[in-house]
Amino acid sequence: MQVLLEQLVNGLTIGTFYALVAMGYSMVYGIMKLINFAHGDLFTLGSYLGYTLLVIGGGWVTTTFGVWGGVVVAVLGAMLGIGIAGLLLERVAYAPVYKAGRLPLVVSALGASIFISNGIMAVWGPRFQAYPATSIPSGSILLFGDFRITILKLVTILVAFALMALIYFIVEKTLFGAAVRAMALDRETATLMGIDFRKIILFVFFVGPALGALAGVFAGLNYTRIIFNLGWSYGLKAFTAVILGGIGNIPGAMLGGIMLGLMEALFEGLVSGAWKNVFVFIILIIILIVRPTGLIGEKIAEKV
């Protein structure tokens, strides 16, 4: 029972990371029909940016603003920095290739992914880096019985859910969100209706990576160790989550991320850690066979 509860919390935690990263994938996919392979690496870059903010000047941020203040600075700093990096990525690697077709776009995304992860390696080195222990919030609270949860995990989950709720509200309930969804359904018609494609692109490529950066910093705080190619496995699983929920469908991406995290953690706790990724991909393949539109479903029909 204890194991089960612990794995549920662990699954929920990692699931929120997958969900946050997945939303970025899903938004970009919706608008550009592109698997943004570089997205996972922006997540890593966000994690490193947060790490740098926390270690710079001998932990100056933490000593000045306190542990939680330091976390806020690291998170916001990373989100801003990676949001801008996302915009830059779109400008340099995608905007000029957009007209050339989908295959060049995919290759460009692969190239950008390789560039960013190896750029991180060039700057921060090929070894693991550890978030400084002094900057990581400590303490835990008794939830019920003798089941404890660390405050950090609780905050991680709450913040992630709050942000997901916010994005859900923006995309599903506001006029701007309607424009984003319209663009995802039919770019040409949406443009003819007066929606500015560039504006939507800016939104998608700022918000998506910023959410990824948030996940990156919290992943660093929770698991301490980070490495330059961290984003590869997070990215791949996040995209799996996207498919699980239904590609191009933002609430689906959130749901898919949480579910994937839970399934993975339960498998790891109850069966085997070494085979958990195999399990995840087999789940993916099964989902695609029995319900190729994902759990919530996508709305793409080809006109013949």
């Binding site: 290739v97 290759v107 460009s108 190239g111 390789i114 560039f115 992860s117």
Partner: peptide
């Protein structure tokens, strides 16, 4: 050697921008 893939990634993007075919 350690910058090889960095260069490779950049070259891929440049290639797709200038000669996608």
């Amino acid at each position: 050697a350690s910058y090889r893939l960095l260069f490779f990634g950049a070259a891929l993007v440049a290639m797709m921008v200038f000669r996608p075919g």
